[in-house]
Design a protein around this nucleic acid. Structure first.
Length: 464
RNA sequence: UCCUCAGUAGCUCAAUGGUAGAGCAAUCGGCUGUUAACCGAUAGGCUGUAGGUUCGAAUCCUACCUGGGGAGCCA
């Protein structure tokens, strides 16, 4: 007798036809009648559940089985049969059903629609629902797709540090990492906490970006990427911010902003294609219940050219739009969410790269353009999610970089190694950061970041 | 952090100043192919918390708590 997973039964159902098999799983629903009943059994290996038919005639514990509710774990032995005339493609005619673990009647997941807010409070049970089963399978596949994309192109995967002393990046509020006693920290002569007595002998925090370290590796391996957790202690309360999230940060030596955008576009298209191909059931589900038109939209994106406009052109488009914006449109000011949404959703209705922002509103490491007014930055905006990628060509000229650091009040001493990259064999290079969760949101149509992270961490929330 | 909306049965929602209700889930019963099964019955409530207004508050007012949406910050 063969133990089978539903995934195998789906992929290879001819081989199993009329064979006796054993499956394990959890009951999604149980519909019993006088002398027979049906169980929808999900074993976690496949999005769809499998139907188990049981009859009083063949089951000694029929009454027990008939009384089982949603959530119970069972082992089923029986014959696998194809049922092409029925609504389900195949089913198992049970010869034996063994209860592995009962699920009492207060099991909160019912065979009905639940709100995402309710399920968020049940992060330990929500993976057993259709929606989250689909989301987290896609999340896993997308992780693989990203590695596949970069590995096939010879990129080196670099584990940038999670604990860092680097607080000069200006990418947000930091989570302090310390072993000092918060009630009784050592005090230095100046009356401040003496971090030289801390574990690392200096102030340390969780990383907000692996970019600076990625630059180090890019100037040794040429093509590299990081893919790991990132932490921001911002008091952000939105559907697209979390305190702990994952980021992909490719960095390429001898590349300019154009190369950077080409890579970003290629990567996005690869990710989307991979999921459309390898998560057909899940994408069908999202298309039907989460975001009608999702599949068509994604398919169009794979085939379309991403729009590329400069910041200056974006300002012109916004001004010409005659649209009423809450925030004024003016060259020199950063684009607001409403502006970005207009550009990607109304003006072009597809992903849009916006490049060459005024250098004052962008980070110190972004390369200053020849006009001396703008920096070689690029943001990728996508409909529904907004900014999904932020990147730039890096400033490789030591003297320009140092001047920029002075303007931004950044301690040069702490980043001596970063400056060394320009001193020894400096080369032009470029890279970007992709918010992994935002990519999952974009591809699944799920519009809250808390629903694409297994156990989301946000302000005031760290249950589970 | 700011703006805004909402907290009523396990879940999703009604009840707009005058006796708190439905569907689903649960429990019991019926049903020989169901598939968000169906049909009948039963049970289920200090209306987020604390004050206040009123003869009377789920409903009006104040504060707090929790959650949603939007904004800022960003990925």
């Amino acid at each position: 007798m063969e133990k089978a997973m539903v995934r195998q039964l789906v992929q290879d159902n001819d081989r199993y036809n009329e064979k006796q098999i054993v499956v394990n799983g959890w009951i999604r629903s149980n519909r019993d009648q006088k002398s027979f009943g049906f169980i929808s059994l999900n074993d976690g290996t496949h999005f769809d559940s499998i139907q188990v038919v049981y009859e009083k005639e063949f089951l000694s514990n029929f009454d027990e089985v008939a009384s089982l509710g949603a959530g119970a774990a069972v082992t089923v032995r029986g014959i696998f049969v194809q049922t092409p005339q029925a609504r389900q493609p195949f089913e198992i005619k049970a010869a034996e059903i063994i209860l592995e673990g009962d699920s009492p009647k207060d099991y909160p997941i019912q065979p009905k629609r639940h709100t995402r807010e309710f399920l968020r409070e049940l992060a330990h049970l929500r993976p057993r629902t259709n929606l989250f089963s689909a989301v987290f399978r896609v999340r896993s596949l997308l992780t693989f797709a990203i590695h596949k994309f970069f590995q096939e192109r010879g990129f080196i995967y670099l584990h940038s540090p999670i604990i860092t002393a680097n607080d000069a990046e200006g990418a947000g509020e930091l989570f302090r990492v310390t072993t000092l006693d918060p009630k009784n920290p050592p005090i230095a002569e100046d009356g401040q906490v003496d971090y030289s007595a801390d574990f690392f002998g200096k102030k340390t925090n969780l990383t907000v970006s692996g970019q600076l370290e990625a630059e180090v590796f890019a100037l040794a391996f040429r093509n590299v990427y990081t893919f790991g957790p990132t932490f921001r202690a911002e008091n952000s309360n939105t559907a697209r911010h979390a305190a702990e999230f994952w980021m992909i940060e490719p960095e390429v030596a001898f590349a300019d902003l154009q190369d950077n955008m080409r890579l970003a576009e290629e990567m996005m298209k690869f990710m989307i294609s991979y999921i459309l191909e390898n998560a057909a059931e899940e994408m069908e589900f999202f298309n039907k219940f989460v975001d009608k038109g999702l599949k068509e939209r994604l398919q169009n994106i794979v085939n379309a050219e991403f729009e590329r406009i400069t910041y200056t052109r974006a300002i012109e488009i916004l001004k010409e739009s005659k649209q009423k914006f809450e925030y004024p449109v003016e060259w020199g000011k950063d684009l607001q969410t409403e502006h970005e949404r207009y550009l990607t959703e109304k003006a072009f209705n597809k992903p849009v790269f916006v490049t060459d922002y005024p250098k004052e509103i962008k980070a110190f490491y972004m390369r200053v353009n020849d006009d001396k007014k703008t920096a070689a930055a690029m943001d990728l905006l996508v409909p529904g999610v907004g900014e999904i990628i932020g990147g730039s060509q890096r400033e490789e000229r030591a003297e320009v970089l140092e001047k920029r650091m002075e303007e931004f009040n950044i301690e040069k001493e702490a980043l001596w190694w970063y400056l060394d990259l320009r001193k020894y064999g400096g080369a032009k290079h470029a890279g970007f950061g992709l918010g992994f969760e935002r990519a999952v949101m974009y591809i699944t149509g799920v519009n809250n970041i808390r629903d694409v992270i297994p156990f989301p961490r946000t302000v005031n929330t760290c249950e589970f």
